[in-house]
Amino acid sequence: MNTLQPIKTVTGRAVFLPGNDIDTDRIIPARFLKCVTFDGLGEHLFRDERFTEEGTPKQHPLNEPRYLGATILLSGSNFGCGSSREHAPQALYRYGIRAIVTISVAEIFFGNSTTLGLPCVQASAGEIHRLARLVESDPTLKLTLDLEALTISFGDDSISVELPEDARKAFVTGRWDPIADLLEGTAETEVTAANLPYLSG
């Protein structure tokens, strides 16, 4: 039942969102979680950072026309901390983000993103700031994240990035959504459960 396509590269323009510890309440405020589907979450991405309560746009990178259409998000450390809400990576994905490059990323967010086919790779603070400066001076600059080589290339330059090997492998082999693999382990799951008294009793 595995119908996923391998994700080996992501190419696109980038936008830099400065700051560390950008939590999932900021990415998608809780009031937008009152839904039974993920449809339409993209338009509420960073709602309270991007708009006043009256709906007037604020100064925010995602509101700047020159970054419209960017698919690669650059940010600081511990990105996506806080709540486990998958609504956060869902909102980013539905907005159009296809890769996230940060100094570090919160674990639940990382797992949620991976399962959606949204790679979160890590780079040093220095390299991210260098990319941010380049993108700011030329927002049309195309970056290519290569998940096989673990690099981001741009023009004739490139930097190296990190991604845990299990996630990297999952992307490049088209197994980033684990459901098919998990279903294949059904018989073994039953054996493991039978050996646990609280599940077999």
Partner: peptide
């Protein structure tokens, strides 16, 4: 349960 193809644990 087992090791998944990507190296993670089920």
């Amino acid at each position: 349960v087992r090791t998944l193809p990507n190296g993670q644990t089920q």
